[in-house]
Amino acid sequence: MGRRIAIVEDEAAIRANYAEALARQGYEVSAHADRPSALAAFRARLPDLAIIDIGLGDEPEGGFTLCGELRAMSVRLPILFLTARDSDFDIVSGLRLGADDYLTKDVSLTHLLARIAALFRRVDALAGAGVASQEEQFERGPLALDAMRLAASWRGQPVALTLTEFWIVHTLARVPGHVKSRDQLMHDARLVDDGTITSHVKRIRRKFATIDPSFDAIESVYGMGYRWKH
């Protein structure tokens, strides 16, 4: 049985393109053009994953509202924001509403599919359906990463990272001491815009710092990128 993905997007061409691409991957896709119809459909049956645009028709913040409503229906349901907006403010608001990730619309389909796959793997891992392989998990000092569950923990405490943030930490921590350039991080985190790497790193540091105020494992190497301290 294919997994059900809901796309809520007011731009017909994008909606159709994504729907087709996802269908080609074997997903079952339901596409909605506006918030009320999407909400009605979700009430009838929850999808396994939702991809939501922020501006929906004549509701410029409709996606945020929908995300809140969806999160109220299901805590576990993976939600992806896919939007043309890329300001830090929008990203932060989106993530605060409980979205699992935030992507701008120029993300490539390959990246989008990889993210969707990762999110489903996490759902499976959390449900205990999948078998967690050893390679997917590793520890670096106080940091523990589980690539299957997309979960990170610091000194035993879980850190709520988004997909993008998780991939950045994953890339950095896999080879400690090795400088990763913004381009590399961008590629590994499946981002398209290196301008946002800085703000992502900033947010990651802040998240770790709320658990451990002395957190300084991510080092800026000016002119090159970032590295995970030994």
């Binding site: 691409a21 619309k105 120029d106 490539s108």
Partner: peptide, 20 residues
Amino acid sequence: SHELRTPVAVVRSSLENLHA
């Protein structure tokens, strides 16, 4: 850039579908 992102996304997703 915001306004152009949507048409760019249309072109990109169309091209990628074309790949298939």
